[in-house]
């Protein structure tokens, strides 16, 4: 089956710093692929490259088998993402934000009310439907951004540190939402430094360090934290 997302030999430098270094990565349908790494490892830069927010110095990205620069615009309607800031216009209510996000993903207007109701219910934003997003807590703004990224049931989902600012209840809702979409066949790339959370949802864990992918971890490893630091330490030693 065609990979939902594929990167090959992807590199990008900022000045003399190699932020992403020859990364090759695949996100398969029905798979949660977690990207773990320390702060500054290059996870967010890699995700920006994968979604066309920055252009690579070398390497290619393809979505559903089509290179990014030839991807028909309509195909992006089957992609959902949260990179850094959530989709939350401060002057709009939660509902208005979700309706707008759905339209921008070309969802048929007649389907939007039900879709928004389901998204509000899934991320438990019911009490805030008519609240302006500027009045939401950071955690609820993040829930709104996740709802906007997931509500149209995309085939490819890219989430950068999605559990940031979420309370424990929000983390569980996010986990369930991700797993539901994985079971429905979506390919999901998620970055995180919460290893215990990653272990609960990931089918594949890739470790990133200094812009390079340095190996994988088994999600069922009993001491994931130890395995992670061993991999990072070994890479640091090897590249001294």
């Amino acid at each position: 089956m065609t990979a939902r997302l594929k990167a090959h030999g992807l590199s990008r430098s900022f000045g003399t710093t190699r932020a992403v270094d020859e990364v090759t990565l695949v996100v398969a349908p029905g798979q949660v692929h977690a990207l773990v790494g320390l702060n500054g490892a290059g996870k967010s830069t890699l995700m920006r490259l994968l979604l066309g927010m920055i252009r690579p110095d070398q390497g290619t990205v393809s979505v559903a088998g089509t290179p990014l620069d030839r991807l028909p615009a309509e195909h992006w309607s089957r992609v959902g993402h949260v990179i850094e800031a959530p989709f939350a216009y401060p002057e709009l209510s939660v509902r208005a934000n979700l309706e707008m996000a759905a339209r921008l993903h070309l969802v048929n207007p007649s389907l939007i009310p039900t879709m928004v109701d389901q998204a509000v219910s899934e991320l438990q934003l019911n009490a805030y439907t008519h609240v302006l997003s500027r009045r939401l807590s950071q955690g609820n703004r993040q829930r709104l951004g996740l709802a906007a990224a997931l509500q149209h049931h995309p085939e490819l989902i890219v989430l950068d540190e999605p559990s940031n600012a979420l309370d424990p209840a929000g983390v569980i809702l996010l986990r369930e939402a991700i797993l539901r979409r994985r079971d429905a066949g979506a390919g999901i790339l998620v970055s995180s430094h919460h290893l215990d959370e990653v272990a609960r949802i990931a089918d594949r864990i890739t470790v990133m360090n200094h812009g390079r992918l340095i190996g994988t971890l088994d999600p069922h490893t009993t001491d994931l934290e130890h395995a992670f630091f061993t991999a990072v330490h070994a890479d640091d030693q090897a590249h001294r």
Binding site: G52, H75, V79, I83, E84, A88, Y89, H105
Partner: peptide, 14 residues
């Protein structure tokens, strides 16, 4: 300023 620019990428609208 609001950071919403990232939401305007990877959309079916150019």
């Amino acid at each position: 300023v609001d950071g919403t620019i990232t939401s305007l990428f990877a959309l079916p609208i150019r």
